[in-house]
Design a protein around this nucleic acid. Sequence first.
DNA 1: GCCTATCTATATTGGACCGATATAGATCGA
DNA 2: TCGATCTATATCGGTCCAATATAGATAGGC
Lengths: 176, 176
Amino acid sequence: MDVRTICLGILTRGDATGYEIKKLFEEGGYEHFVEASFGSIYPALSRLTDEGFVSVRSEAQEKRPDRKVYSITPVGRSAFVATLLKPLPEDRHRSPFVFAMLFADLLPQAHVSAMVDHYIGQVEEKLAHLNSHSDASKSDGERFVMDYGRTVYEATLNFLRTHRAEIENQPAQAAE
Amino acid sequence: MDVRTICLGILTRGDATGYEIKKLFEEGGYEHFVEASFGSIYPALSRLTDEGFVSVRSEAQEKRPDRKVYSITPVGRSAFVATLLKPLPEDRHRSPFVFAMLFADLLPQAHVSAMVDHYIGQVEEKLAHLNSHSDASKSDGERFVMDYGRTVYEATLNFLRTHRAEIENQPAQAAE
DNA sequence: GCCTATCTATATTGGACCGATATAGATCGA
DNA sequence: TCGATCTATATCGGTCCAATATAGATAGGC
């Protein structure tokens, strides 16, 4: 999903700055399915403004730099819905950890165990972060995607804990 | 994980052409954690050759275009292992479908159901593809990552089948 | 008082990546 | 004969992002 569509979607839920959009990705429990960097968010917001899909107003702040608050326009809202009604791009999953496990036999066993421990820790942290969000104020869609994320993280943890021995106790540099 | 590292890894398992590396991603059951396009594979192989991490030989074929076969060098193999021993980049997951489900309330219910059906079909296809790979000739690492993929796909399917009603029967354009 | 770490806030850049395209060689079914 | 599809290499323009830049803070340690 391109970053302009992502920003439009976020803005259907309420006005936001570029910085707030980024924070939503980092802290909002969305990291299992969406992310964007400042390097793409600010240019995307600029283009959306140029295209008339969003409008922008500056707000001065005391003791803080000014902030630019973006609002979706009616045209932008229609464009967003139209995009969702088209066939969606494929999911993309990239896991350096899983890729590295393909080659566990090339690594010292102690290091493989440490990598598995570290990855389990990362997933536990993400799950805890998801669980820290109360469901009280969530829409059905938000609850659905949070529960989906929990399901995948829990399945991942169960799998790693159950199956880690299968790649940890391999002879180093097995003949291949 | 950058594409050069990915190509190096594949080549530790045996010589391959750029085209074969791409086919491995598409058909090898790796799509839940790694992928690269021709647009990045060929330049990566060129750079690896320039850097001395791989060597290349051309093979003429009857009735087919010539093919370039790449082999990892001892220096390349060491570099690959050294890369795996460093801290790995974070996983990245991008799911336009899950992102769209955040906004299910903006869409006609029939369309939401169709999107869920289509996504379930895609995941079922990926799972069937994974299951089509016999475990007989797999290394422990390969078995591990295939089993991991199955676990995640199965958890996904179970979740979608169980919870789809939570976003399908919403009033259209709920007040927000 | 200074320095480092961290937060808030916007913006840009160079390099990596990729979908599309190009070129060139086939087979197969209608 | 033609269109679809496969094999095979390669490039390009657009998108994305980590890093960097600039500018405004607070807080804690020395």
